[in-house]
């Protein structure tokens, strides 16, 4: 009896790894690997949006999205591809760099030995936890041209005599999007950098102080080396999350006015769902995937660290 139990115990123990890892791997195969393979598969088919007929087209979807051609003659990059890529670079570049600078500043402040630090930390995190849709609509309301708070503050305080229609101008609409994005994602930077700052040994600061190092030199020589891994992670995740973000753009501008705030994510959604062209949508998905991995590779090479 007890030997039987014993052997069952031993068998179960031997199976510990397969039983704990196996189901997760099967699950991941079903919800991640299979859809990703299917993405590549879908990207080489073209579906006629008006009658649903599907044909194998090889890489033509990619070619059409990225390059302009006329009767087989290559005319350079497709104008949509160029302009949407540019919007994406502006959107991601500005939001990430501004929110990084802001987040680093706040993290450095929160790292000080201040009373009520926990309270401040709680208060700065909240924007990141709210549903992006709600944040996007909230900022759309803030920037609303007649009744929005920003126009209200500017005109009622007398700073401006007439209200600004933020969403009717491409540049202003992009600015509104970037502000919303910074608002949403800066807390993430703060959290990651704050955790990184906690790794900096206090004695080193003290030593630096004894050496009479100025603040810049202290940051560069003491803080930065310890903070580098966190900076890398914060930037990587921030960038790859921003490239894929549809929520804010879709609820605030839907890519408008005209196409001036169309970014890759909204282009992909519009192509696949609004225009009913899944093949080209999948091709854009493949491009997005490739770009994401390229960015990660480049960042980790620049910082000279291996990922994880």
């Amino acid at each position: 009896m007890s030997t039987e139990k014993q052997s069952l115990r031993r068998t179960l123990d031997r199976l510990f790894v397969p039983l704990t890892v196996g189901p997760t791997m099967l699950w991941i195969a079903a919800v991640i690997v299979y859809p990703t393979l299917k993405l590549f598969w879908s990207s080489v088919f073209w579906t006629n949006p008006i009658n649903g007929q599907r044909e194998f087209v090889g890489l033509r979807n990619f070619q059409r999205l990225i390059f302009a051609e006329e009767g087989g003659a290559f005319l350079g990059l497709a104008p949509d591809f160029v302009s949407i890529t540019w919007h994406t670079i502006v959107y991601v570049g500005l939001s990430v760099s501004i929110s990084f600078a802001l987040g680093l500043g706040i993290a450095l402040l929160l790292d000080k030995d201040l009373k009520g630090r926990g309270w401040f930390r709680t208060a700065v995190i909240v924007p990141w936890i709210l549903p992006y849709v709600m944040s996007g609509l909230m900022w759309r309301w803030m920037f609303q041209s007649e009744y929005g708070a920003i126009n209200g503050l500017l005109t009622q305080s007398g700073l401006l005599s007439s209200k600004i229609a933020f969403f009717s101008d491409g540049t202003l609409a992009m600015m509104a999007l970037i502000i919303a994005d910074i608002w949403v994602f800066t807390p993430f930077i703060i959290i990651i950098l704050l955790a990184g700052l906690q790794n900096v040994p206090e004695q080193l600061y003290d030593a630096a102080e004894v050496d009479g190092a100025g603040r810049i030199s202290r940051f560069v020589n003491v803080t930065y080396p310890f903070l580098k891994p966190s900076i890398l992670v914060a930037l990587t995740i921030r960038i790859i999350f921003d490239i894929r973000a549809l929520d804010l753009v879709w609820v605030m501008t839907q890519g408008g006015p005209g196409k001036s705030t169309e970014v890759w994510a909204s282009w992909l959604y519009r192509t696949a769902q609004v225009f009913n062209r899944p093949g080209e949508g999948a091709a854009l998905g493949v491009v997005l995937l490739a770009v994401t991995f390229m960015i990660v590779a480049v960042l980790y090479n620049v910082f000279g660290d291996s990922p994880y």
């Binding site: 859809p35 993405l39 790859i240 490239i243 959604y269 696949a272 998905g285 997005l288």
Partner: peptide, 21 residues
């Protein structure tokens, strides 16, 4: 490593396959 990689896949890239599936 594949799990780390999986975390980087942009969900929006997969709307087409998920819809079909």
């Amino acid at each position: 490593l594949s799990i780390v990689g999986a975390r980087m896949i942009p969900p929006i890239a997969l709307i087409v396959p998920f819809f079909t599936i």
